[in-house]
Design a protein around this nucleic acid. Sequence first.
DNA 1: TTGTATGCGTTATCAA
DNA 2: TTGATAACGCATACAA
Lengths: 343, 343
Amino acid sequence: MRVTIRQVAAAAGVSTATVSRVLAGTQAVSPELAERVRQTAASLGYRPNVLAQGLARGRSGVVGVLVPNLANPYFNDTIKALMHSAERDGYRVIVADSDERRENELPLGESLLRWSDGLVLVASRAAPTALRRLVGAHKPVVAVNHKPKPEIDEFVHISVNAYTPMRELCRHLVREGHRRIVYLSGPRTSWQSQERWRAVRSARRWGASVSSVPCGGTIEEGYAAAEGALGEEPSAVMAFNDLAAFGFLSRCGELGLRVPEDLSLTGFDDIPFAQFTSPPLTTVRSPLADVGVAAWQAMRRLLDGERRVLGMMLPSEMVIRSSTAPPRSMLGGSEPDKTTPTT
Amino acid sequence: MRVTIRQVAAAAGVSTATVSRVLAGTQAVSPELAERVRQTAASLGYRPNVLAQGLARGRSGVVGVLVPNLANPYFNDTIKALMHSAERDGYRVIVADSDERRENELPLGESLLRWSDGLVLVASRAAPTALRRLVGAHKPVVAVNHKPKPEIDEFVHISVNAYTPMRELCRHLVREGHRRIVYLSGPRTSWQSQERWRAVRSARRWGASVSSVPCGGTIEEGYAAAEGALGEEPSAVMAFNDLAAFGFLSRCGELGLRVPEDLSLTGFDDIPFAQFTSPPLTTVRSPLADVGVAAWQAMRRLLDGERRVLGMMLPSEMVIRSSTAPPRSMLGGSEPDKTTPTT
DNA sequence: TTGTATGCGTTATCAA
DNA sequence: TTGATAACGCATACAA
């Protein structure tokens, strides 16, 4: 059996209470005693039993994180930042993966809450009733990139502002001459996808015709959605995220379509490999790590008992690379915007 | 406060012992009583406190997983499979990320072990002394893709046989006519990288000249290593993994080198996007999910107290796609690159 | 400042 | 089959 606090107390000739106080630093102990306790604890290699600590303290020192899909690089940076932030504060993270199935979220969330002091829901697609039950556990819940629900205001929202940069990106495309834009939509229940589509629709006011094609957020779905989207004969395609854009790009290559010569393409997130595709992807840079850090800070405050913890809307910005360019009609044709002609 | 076993016992008019027995199913209880207990437990929404359970049982129902880098897609599928397998057996997974720094492994591993009943080390680069300390906790340790250490045989190994398919891939390249092969090596302390390089070296017996260029396992490192590797004037480049291959490929595009016309390129792992690059990547398919499942099965057995749990060496296979082709020298013969100059 | 004693919520041992 | 009750290892209110 492992060495317990009792053995340390015995070896140091003090009570278990003193050992506990010294090691947790919760109360003042005379320097000599403290030193002696620390010495013997170290020499015995004593490690407090976290389960017993948790039981006695009423909190486990663990937080749960629920993501739709661990295999999506998009979530990795966020989780990583969250995890490291939590680690620095002495917390451990347990994670679960709902496999993009909203019906998994409630049971998994409840399971996580049994182990943890709080729950971080990333890009949750859970129904309001499910969320209500999760919140009902009376433990802090932080929602990342989740649609704000006025009717359940008991959790803190950390979100990325997708609308503004996405709209800016549309504006950019329109300025370059694109008039026919297709949006490859993400998971149906994804709030972020709705926001991005809302932004794309706004391009109508600049005179573009836009439509939405069901797709998803994976490489495979982007690949599969390509032909349908091309049927709409767009000059620019805006994918829900970089993964879908990448799958789409791959299919374009097979079909002999060149990007950006024949077609402009944009993604979203700016995951690490977005700048390494051929051509490098025009996209929107999501502050992935910042989101993780912000989520932890909010969680930390909630765990510390703060009443009003405010949510955040983090900014993101357009990143123009080489997968977008003026459409062919602009290049050949009647030479509309004469950028070069000096005469 | 949450509802405890005592309240359920009171409401059902039985002892806490009976409630525990019914819900855990550890001992026979008369059907009527059992039913009554179940009813009241359900109606009260009783959930056993996992911390108290863990303390009383002497095990937490949690296993720890330590990976070098959570952001590497390579690990995602493995972790995901491991996690889901563990979930099915009622276990939760806590994960930590060493950020590719071997000095982080010991502290993180020890931290994980405090919470968990066992530890899975994925692609560990820890020093033998560190491993010895981890094993010293007397909890099961499963090592995934770690160099077998004869001197510490107290943990079970689950590995992928990289040597055989990598060698086969070399043979394939040589048969296609490649005589000058460069290997982009992975992390220095990675056993898998050593195995793969050992396989590449074996190409010497087929008459090829091979050399190794320091690189790493990330897109960025593959990108950065490109120019140095090209300096060796190889006709084929074999990257440590798909990520490095992808970075390399990206740089080639910038330098105006076409793959596979000017240069053949291979990866390793067959991560999801390998088939979507342009051109699709020739690589070796690592059974990522299978590794996760096998690691859990081994861990499960160890947790159940089995004495001799055997390790496994999982096979992997070469996947030929379009990033490899016979070198130009084979195509043109004595007419090296007369593609344009007609005169 | 230090020690004593109780509680945290379950499981498991022992009697009945 | 069921019920008291002692662990499990630690934290803390209370006393000294």
